[in-house]
Computed example of a mutant assay.
Amino acid sequence: MKSLSLSERHSYILDLLRQQGSVAVIDLANQLKVSSVTIRKDLTLLEEKKMLYRTHGSAILINPYINDRHVNEKEKFYTEEKRLIGMQAANLITPDDSIIIASGTTMHALARQIVPQGHLTVITAAINVTHILACNKNIDIIQLGGLVRNSSVSAVGSYAEKMLENFSCSKLFMGVDGIDLEYGLSTTNMMEANLNRIMMKAAQKTIVLADSSKFGRRGFGKICDLDAVEHVITDSHIQPKILEELRERGLEVTIAN
């Protein structure tokens, strides 16, 4: 490759990031025939312009760390993707099933799509999920209690965790704030992360509902590693590279179209 100008190097780096999701300093130095010091300076300039995010020895397109936002704000984003994911997840509920529904806007989308076959029992921490399902006489709802998080309008803490010790369900439907191939599944709140882990113990199978914007992101509270869940339902905008990696790790991945 011929020697490139500063602007040409920056365009090359950003194009490669869009294709691959991440780039390593050493690989860029080899491809562009410049020193690692030059590449680090390039990445610093691009980060200052908020065009990428630097990590250890590499760069990615977005800042992976997520801030906590109110559920009403998050409801406005990826509404169609969440609706399709909710429809796909609802199809997994069997006649006379007993399930756990965690908190989050994708859980609200799931709740809106549930039409029970026979009688359905739902355990949930999310007050909004209870509100959506409460009008259906064929659904018994066990509302977990405890401290209510203002941002998620859901219960967390020891009371909710203690209640789950008395139940065993077929499935847990769980939303997350981030899915990172190395870090695993996470949320922005450590108490919610802990409750999710307890929920996983009370269910035979964990099904993660996450739109494609959640991949490559990290919340403050880690829930679990990727291999602790069985099934991920997401939308068609997931990066092919991430989809391939998930399936290579043995996860069942459903694309909601």
Rank of each mutant, 00 (worst) to 15 (best):
I179R: 03
E81N: 00
V153W: 01
S170H: 13
D15G: 00
G184Q: 02
G221Q: 12
Y159V: 10
T234K: 12
I66R: 12
R18K: 00
R249Y: 15
R40H: 04
A125H: 05
I207Q: 03
I207K: 02
D235S: 09
N72D: 13
T187Y: 08
Q113H: 13
L209G: 00
R218W: 05
I123P: 12
S168D: 13
S170C: 07
I255R: 06
T121L: 05
E245Q: 15
L120M: 12
E48C: 04
K49F: 07
F167V: 11
I60M: 06
H131Y: 09
A210N: 02
A134H: 13
Q113C: 14
I233G: 07
N257W: 04
D225C: 01
Y183W: 02
L243I: 11
M200S: 09
E165S: 06
S236C: 13
L46K: 09
G104N: 14
V253N: 11
T105H: 14
M200E: 03
N67G: 07
Q143I: 05
S158A: 07
Q117E: 13
N189P: 12
H119Q: 09
I207L: 04
N63K: 15
K2V: 14
V176F: 02
M107Y: 07
Y65S: 15
D140K: 05
I123C: 10
M190Q: 10
S35I: 02
N257S: 14
I39R: 06
I26Y: 10
V208I: 12
I233R: 06
I238D: 01
R40L: 04
A111L: 03
R249F: 15
M174F: 00
M199Q: 11
I13L: 05
I99E: 02
E81Q: 05
A59E: 04
T124F: 08
E248F: 13
I179A: 04
T79V: 09
T124A: 06
H70G: 06
G57I: 06
L133Q: 08
K33E: 12
T124M: 06
C169P: 00
D97L: 02
Y53F: 15
I99A: 01
K205R: 14
A89Y: 10
K171P: 01
F77Q: 14
D97W: 01
I233D: 07
G219E: 06
G250Q: 08
C135H: 13
R149W: 04
E81M: 00
T124I: 03
A155F: 01
A125K: 03
N150S: 07
S11Q: 11
V153K: 05
N91G: 14
R247Y: 10
L147G: 00
M107K: 05
L172M: 13
G86N: 09
T234A: 12
M51L: 15
T44C: 07
Y53D: 13
A202T: 11
K49S: 13
A29V: 04
K41T: 08
R69C: 01
L133V: 07
H108W: 08
Q20L: 10
H10Q: 14
I179L: 13
I179H: 02
I198C: 01
M163H: 07
Q143T: 11
A126L: 01
S151R: 03
S236N: 13
